[in-house]
Design a protein around this nucleic acid. Structure first.
Lengths: 235, 235
DNA sequence: CTCTGTGAAAACATTCACAGCG
DNA sequence: CGCTGTGAATGTTTTCACAGAG
């Protein structure tokens, strides 16, 4: 564990937003951006942006701002986006099928290479160009295809079991869509997204009569989020 | 704006997890739970659980713990889950269709009553029992069906425009799945979920060699999070 | 002048630790 | 006892404000 420096969790969440916004600006042909302009697009202060980016080194050019292409490259490397991620989807229900067909994953370097479902009668049917496989082929396929991430899109009560199988097969991280906490051993990454929780947070904002801008990225095993929050909620 | 008390954002995110866990325990027939047991299931300390729950009143019974049914009812009311939420889905692509068919929403009191798509050639086709409608029927349908929430499942470049139309039509909150920040006027709720950001957070956990349990609930318009985080990430 | 990087201050959130109820 | 609710202590994150680079 090559522990160098501690990154505040909220900052880690914002990093993804910086990368998303910067990539989009790069596509527009912009070459440079100030912390103020970047913060403005994301609902953050300029100081916050500078602090976050300074966590990894000196990327800015005083008087000029940040060189976008350069910064995107650095952030990608820092976030592990320069490697190739090979992903399998567990569960070929509504959500699993939608994710397999979600083109953006591939474009962003997360390639889905296999789909599994416990229902053997689905075996062989194709989803987004991939044949559905049975769960007992998991270990072999993960090894053969060098899969390092798994996405759980199975019913709640099967989720922990499927997670255990993924870890046993050798994946390094799990993105969980089932509505429950997943436990994994130290060293395995886990991020959860719960659609109902997301809608509920929305209902809460409204019920409480006070609304702030919030990004929900359901974290690992617990109640994480990925929102550039602003004020607390007042009730 | 009946501002009474300020609720820490991280606490707001955890509330959903308490409710989810408590409901599940109620189904198992459990009647009582201590802050310690609840925290254990969610990866939180007992003190954290007590502080969070105490934000809204005195729910616990010293020596005994919390009465589950009672607490679930209180939390539901506090979070606005006692009302009926009527939802429309914008975009009948992979994600939109998966969400329309996501049964859990209905069971949890979020009823999807309409689906829209800008592609007129899809008009009339059914998705999960609902006919796809064209975007220009939006205002009328929102009013007639008393829709108060909208879900955005359209491509990035159409998202802000669709959000504006939803707000103009009268929805009170938006759940956004498009990969960009959505701006809404004061008083309108917004929560965002970005699948790519979620996978990226996972990649980051792994790249950084240090992994903590995290729940990602992509917040509103900015870089928020919804994670019951633990330690910061070390790089 | 513009705009970064960063210590120092302020705001926030979590954990501790304990008084007090049942 | 067991377990809550809560001030006080601690730890973390954000904001401020400014020196210095281009």
């Amino acid at each position: 564990m090559p522990e160098r420096k501690s990154i505040p969790r909220p900052a880690a969440r914002r990093l993804s937003l910086y990368l998303r916004e910067l990539s989009s600006r790069a596509e527009q042909g912009e070459t440079t951006v100030s912390s103020k302009a970047l913060g403005r697009s994301l609902g953050l202060t300029d100081a916050q942006v500078r602090k976050d980016l300074a966590l990894f080194g000196q990327f800015g050019h005083p008087g000029r701002g940040y060189a976008i292409v350069e910064l995107v490259a650095s952030l990608r490397r820092i976030m592990g986006r320069d490697r190739d991620w090979r992903v399998c989807v567990m569960g070929a229900g509504n959500i699993g099928r939608a994710l397999v067909s979600y083109d953006r994953f591939r474009r962003e370097g997360f390639t889905i290479v296999a789909v599994f479902d416990s229902d053997r009668s689905l075996a062989g049917r194709k989803v987004g160009g991939l044949p559905i496989q049975t769960m007992d082929e998991l270990a072999k396929v993960v090894a053969d295809e060098r899969i390092n991430l798994g996405i759980i899109a199975v019913p709640r009560d099967a989720a922990q079991q499927v997670a255990d199988a993924l870890v046993a097969a050798g994946v390094k991280g799990i993105l969980n869509f089932a509505p429950r906490r997943i436990e994994v051993r130290e060293g395995i990454g886990i991020v959860s997204v719960d659609f109902t929780v997301a809608l509920e947070q929305l209902a809460f904002q409204i019920a409480v009569g006070d609304v702030v801008n919030e990004t929900v990225d359901s974290g690992s095993g617990d109640a994480g989020r990925l929102s550039d929050g602003e004020a607390p909620i007042s009730a």
